[in-house]
Amino acid sequence: MKKDRNYPNKRELTPGDVAKRCGVAVSALHFYESKGLISSFRNAGNQRRYTRDVLRRVAIVKIAQRIGIPLATIGEHLMQFSPGTRMTPKEWRLLTERWREELDRRIATLTRLKDDLDGCIGCGCLSMADCPLRNPDDRLGERGTGAILLEPERDR
Rank of each mutant, 00 (worst) to 15 (best):
K90A: 05
R134L: 09
S40K: 04
C123I: 11
A108T: 13
L71H: 09
N9F: 15
G122M: 12
R100E: 15
P132Y: 00
D115E: 15
L78K: 08
R52S: 13
R134H: 04
W99S: 07
E76A: 13
D53Q: 15
Q65C: 12
G146N: 06
R56I: 12
C125R: 03
P8C: 07
M79L: 12
Y7F: 10
D104G: 08
N46H: 07
I69W: 09
K62R: 15
E142Q: 06
E142F: 05
D116V: 09
R100T: 12
S40M: 05
P89I: 01
G36S: 02
M87Y: 00
G84C: 09
I63K: 13
I121C: 10
G23S: 07
V26C: 04
D118M: 12
L13R: 01
D155Q: 11
V26K: 05
R93V: 10
S40W: 01
R48Q: 12
E153D: 14
L149N: 10
Q65T: 09
G36T: 02
E142V: 10
D118I: 13
L55R: 02
D118Y: 10
F81A: 03
D17Q: 02
L13S: 00
E12K: 00
C125A: 07
C131H: 00
A64H: 08
I67N: 05
E101C: 06
A129K: 06
N135T: 00
R112Y: 12
H30N: 02
M87L: 06
E97P: 01
A108E: 14
L13P: 06
A108S: 14
Q80L: 13
S34F: 02
E101D: 14
L95K: 06
P83M: 09
E91K: 01
D104Y: 10
M128C: 09
Q65K: 14
Q65D: 11
P70T: 12
A108Q: 15
S34R: 01
I63R: 13
T88M: 04
G45W: 04
Y32Q: 03
I74D: 02
L95V: 02
L117T: 12
N135S: 03
E153F: 07
R5H: 05
V54K: 04
V24G: 04
L149C: 11
D130S: 08
K90V: 04
D137Y: 10
D137E: 13
T14Y: 06
C120Y: 08
G84N: 10
G146S: 09
T73I: 13
N6L: 15
G144I: 06
L71F: 12
T145A: 14
R48N: 10
L78I: 07
R106Y: 10
K2P: 02
Q47I: 13
S39H: 03
V54C: 01
L133V: 06
N135A: 04
L71D: 07
I67W: 08
N135M: 05
Y50C: 06
N9M: 11
L140V: 04
L150D: 11
A19H: 02
I38T: 00
G146Q: 08
I63L: 15
Y7I: 07
P89G: 02
P132N: 00
R11D: 11
G75Y: 09
R57W: 10
N9W: 12
V18D: 04
A28W: 02
R66I: 08
R49S: 07
R56H: 12
M87V: 06
A64R: 08
T51R: 15
